[in-house]
Design a binder for these strands. Structure first.
Lengths: 127, 127
DNA sequence: ATATGTGCAAAGCATTTGCGGAGAT
DNA sequence: ATCTCCGCAAATGCTTTGCACATAT
């Protein structure tokens, strides 16, 4: 991660402004505002470097792997099964140490709540 | 899901005995004990039908989508980042209703704890 | 006997890699 | 000027589909 390029800047800006973790295709689409002919391969390569650098973390969602700012702790998400978007959820879920099997060592955790987001619930998803 | 075949029986048996959610390739490998020349395509087809039937649920893990018995509530897992296996975790994490954003409707949740499993911790992962 | 289910192999997608040219330092 | 980075396109790997044969009912 040596040189500062328009493409890398654009990708990082997209993550910084995101309301939830993003997949590579969402990133290209959003980053093309700032870097018009950005290639998908560059996005994948940039994401990998940002993961190695510890700036991003990967998040498994019901519709594929996405990536989120590592700084965005804790990693709690809301997945809308109607629009397939993933949102950040703030706050802590409380201790779960008592769940960890004996001998296992926990490093981090991800909670995903699955349901219908506000916008989709309003548009009839809640009926 | 009308006919009862050796292949479908084998796939269901594998899930019933599993110690955690399984991916399609893990399922073929295990089910070939009972159905020797089982094809991967059949596994994918069977999984899809079992999902539609509500017998399985899909689980997003750090190394791909896996499938678990729907009956196995709650859906809490431990992902070992050393051996990449996913284990069941028993017990409840407590209420998280206060985390849900206003207007959002929650249906289910999945908690994934990431770390090192007992076997891998013994073999030096814990050092 | 018949219609569903299976295995093989080809087709589809998402992700990764190779390479010549563009751009940051 | 140099060396890294980018975009394109080909390659890879996982998942799905088409088709002819096998098999449960």
């Amino acid at each position: 991660m040596l040189r500062r390029t328009r493409q890398r800047q654009a990708v990082q800006d997209v993550f910084a402004k995101a309301e939830g973790p993003l997949g590579p295709h969402e990133v290209v689409a959003a980053a093309r505002n700032a870097a018009s002919n950005l290639g998908i391969a560059t996005v994948y390569r940039t994401i990998r470097e940002l993961l190695n650098a510890g700036w991003l973390v990967s998040v498994a969602t019901p519709n594929g792997t996405r990536f989120d700012l590592a700084a965005h702790q804790p990693h709690h998400y809301f997945y809308c099964s109607v629009c397939a978007k993933t949102f950040h959820v703030e706050g802590c879920v409380g201790s779960f140490d008592h769940l960890i099997p004996p001998g296992f060592v926990a490093n981090e955790h991800q909670l995903t709540i699955i349901g219908t987001c506000g916008a989709c619930a309003l548009q009839g998803g809640g009926s």
